[in-house]
């Protein structure tokens, strides 16, 4: 190993070489676990879609002129992204930080905390965005008509997934045991999941809850996916994209700040 050539790092920057190394690690781990991870990420929302679609579908045939199973099918895309990104962000980050100490190993190399967090949330967000397509494909089997705008759904899923993966890493940075994540799941994730217009329209809910939903990133994701399927509303959709970008940036910065506080004494 006497003539190994290295490229020098650049301090104070998020470097593509570091992100690529973080991605390579995630991708390589994924080669071992992709079957179980994909099963959980794809089958769970599909079961949810079928259960709600066939269950409530018997009681509610249409919402705003849309067959209920198609209404739910487009909403479940968002919940699939939420669960895949947030749970991976929380559990993977805590496992790697506290038990496997992989972050410690990486930080001894020329990689900084912001590069680790950025690489991981980009990877988890991308994966969640891809998994989010599954419920949409199932909804096609129940009569949802493919539309050109639906090609935007993976991008919407990735943007939302990046934000929720960062939120998951942020939650993980506050706790030292897996049990501690229960507060985040019950106190934050479940309310976000229920007040997003996924399974029932927010128009039937109290005004204050409708106002609160504006601060729920999942609501904006649901609206965008529905609009891709049933007709875009350009101005409103720009607002939804803006809300998701803002959420992703905020969660990303907070995740870096808190993870750094955990990893650097």
């Amino acid at each position: 190993m006497s003539t190994i050539t290295r490229t020098p790092p650049r301090p104070g920057r998020i470097e593509p070489a570091a992100l690529a190394a973080v991605w390579l690690r995630e991708w390589t781990v994924n080669k071992y676990f992709w079957q179980s991870r994909t099963f959980a990420a794809v089958v769970e929302p599909v079961i949810m879609l079928l259960a709600f679609g066939f269950g409530f579908g018997k009681l509610v045939s249409h919402i705003a002129g849309i067959p209920y199973i198609q209404f739910v099918g487009t909403g479940v895309v968002a919940t699939s992204v939420l669960f895949s990104a947030t749970f991976s962000g929380m559990f993977d980050a805590l496992y790697k930080r506290r038990y496997q100490r992989v972050y410690d190993a990486m930080l001894a190399a020329p990689v900084d905390v912001d590069e680790i967090v950025t690489g991981e949330v980009l990877y988890l967000g991308t994966r969640a965005g891809i998994y989010g397509i599954a419920p949409l494909l199932v909804a096609f089997c129940f009569g949802l008509r493919p539309e050109p705008a639906m090609l935007l759904v993976p991008a919407i899923g990735i943007l939302t997934g990046v934000g929720f993966a960062a939120l998951g890493m942020l939650f993980a940075s506050f706790v030292t045991t897996f049990d501690g994540l229960s507060y985040a799941i019950s106190g934050v994730i479940t309310p976000l999941f229920l007040v997003a217009g996924t399974f029932f329209p927010l128009t039937r809910m109290p005004l204050w809850l409708r106002d609160a939903a504006q601060f729920n990133p999942l609501f904006h994701c649901v609206q965008l996916v529905r609009h891709c399927a049933f007709g875009l509303h350009p101005l409103a959709d720009l607002g939804h994209v803006g809300a998701l970008v803002l959420f992703a940036l905020l969660a990303w910065q907070l995740a870096i700040w808190r993870t750094r506080a955990r990893l650097i004494d």
Partner: peptide
């Protein structure tokens, strides 16, 4: 990184250390 193979551990760190 005990989830990875021996070779993969080294490949990941070769990248992290910016080996050409």
């Amino acid at each position: 990184d005990i989830d990875l193979s021996v070779r993969a551990v080294l490949e990941v760190f070769a990248r992290l250390y910016r080996v050409a």
